[in-house]
Amino acid sequence: MKPLYLPFADGQWRMAMGLKPLQLQHWIEIDEDFAKELNYKDKLHREQYSDVFGCLPESEAGQQEVLELILEHLLQYFPNYYQQQDDHIVNKVTNQIWNLRDFTKNSLDLAGRLVQEDLCLMQRNDSEYILTAGSVCFPARWRLSEKLGRPLMQIHDPVPGYAQKLEQPVNKFFDRLKPEFPGYRLNWGIVDSPELFLTQPHGCAAFGEDITAENAGEKLWLRVERQTLRRLPKSGGILFTIRTYVYALKSIVRDRQIASQLAAVIQQIPQEMQIYKNILPIKSPLLTYLQQLTAF
């Protein structure tokens, strides 16, 4: 069953990391969309490989460690889904069979095909953490090719207020993160499509031109990312996972309290962040829609 994550449920907008401790048994999540999403990943890899996977040569050892950790986790916690037969990994649900020897140079590629999460490998280079490898099939308005090889600050440069409010806390967290204490956080946005491979840019002026208070429930979706961070014990890199959930807005706001909480948070978001998140173009009809739901 798909879990329901509502990061705005306290009705407060915050520009903060919002990290919480992660129990390792809950690191990877599987739900009823497992087969559909993995088959979609397979399609993207076949048709748009350079868009969904990339790596730098120095990432090879880190990639291998990620694959080992994920395989160990999947075989322990999801034995009904996965089986290892010598050098072959079998997905019992999709009937996919992967040969480990085919991925000796790009182990993160295979790791990303096994789970619904997207995977980003961050490795320290002098004083900065660099994105050295990524398997990203379900991006939220960004492209892996534009981020690969860049440090944290450049990756987050488009985010309003990141340099002032989050750069130092994020850097400190990365420096202090220990293998035995992983963490997770939630990120969210409102989108006009249930598409998982979403490359439409942030701050798009044409976004939501057809959204009205009457059709907002039908044409908008809540998109939530469950992001985890885990230090790799051998190579010292950090694995950043992104699990994307998309919920039809109309199904979420059937609960009047949730509708009220979402409206309260949207009204608190600074304008520059509204622009970045593509909320400003739909703010008026969206708020009218939510307020109509809570008026009775």
Score class of each variant (00 low, 15 high):
Asp157Ala: 06
Phe296Asn: 08
Ala264Thr: 01
Arg254Pro: 06
Asp86Val: 15
Glu58His: 15
Ala140Pro: 06
Leu108Met: 08
Ile252Glu: 00
Gly237Met: 05
Thr241Glu: 06
Lys219Glu: 03
Glu128Met: 14
Asn91Ile: 13
Val93Thr: 13
Leu38Pro: 07
Lys165Ala: 11
Trp188Arg: 05
Val265Arg: 05
His73Thr: 00
His73Pro: 01
Ile28Val: 06
Trp221Pro: 07
Ala213Met: 07
Lys92Ala: 13
Asp86Trp: 13
Thr228Ala: 12
Ile252His: 02
Leu38Gly: 08
Gly183Val: 03
Gln23Ala: 11
Val191Ala: 02
Gln292Cys: 03
Ser260Phe: 06
Glu214Arg: 15
Pro182Trp: 09
Ser59Tyr: 11
Thr199Lys: 15
Trp142Asp: 03
Met153Ile: 10
Gly11Arg: 01
Asp109Ala: 01
Leu110Phe: 03
Glu128Val: 12
Ala61Lys: 09
Leu196Trp: 10
Leu262Val: 02
Thr132Lys: 09
Phe174Ile: 00
Gly11Glu: 02
Leu121Arg: 04
Gln64His: 11
Leu249Glu: 06
Lys41Tyr: 02
Asn125Glu: 13
Met15Asp: 11
Lys20Asn: 10
His202Asn: 14
Thr199Asn: 12
Ala264Met: 02
Gln63Lys: 10
Leu100Gln: 14
Ser50Lys: 02
Tyr5Val: 09
Asp109Cys: 04
Glu47Ile: 00
Pro151Trp: 10
Gln271Tyr: 06
Ile279Phe: 00
Leu186Met: 15
Leu75Gly: 04
Leu56Arg: 10
Ile130Asp: 00
Arg46Ile: 08
Val52Trp: 01
Tyr289His: 00
Asp118Thr: 09
Asp157Arg: 12
Gln271Gly: 03
Glu195Phe: 15
Lys41Asn: 03
Glu195Arg: 14
Gly112Thr: 09
Ala61Gln: 11
Thr212Tyr: 05
Lys277Asn: 05
Val224Asn: 01
Asp192Met: 03
Ser260Tyr: 09
Thr94Ile: 12
Ala259Asn: 12
His202Ala: 11
Asn99Gly: 12
Leu24Tyr: 14
Phe181Gly: 02
Leu71Tyr: 09
Lys172Pro: 10
Leu114Gly: 06
Leu114Gln: 05
Lys43Cys: 12
Leu71Pro: 07
Gln154Tyr: 00
Met1Gly: 14
Ile89Trp: 06
Leu287Phe: 01
Gly203Glu: 01
Leu71Val: 10
Arg141Phe: 08
Glu117Thr: 03
Cys120Ser: 08
Leu290Asp: 07
Gly203Pro: 07
Pro3Asn: 07
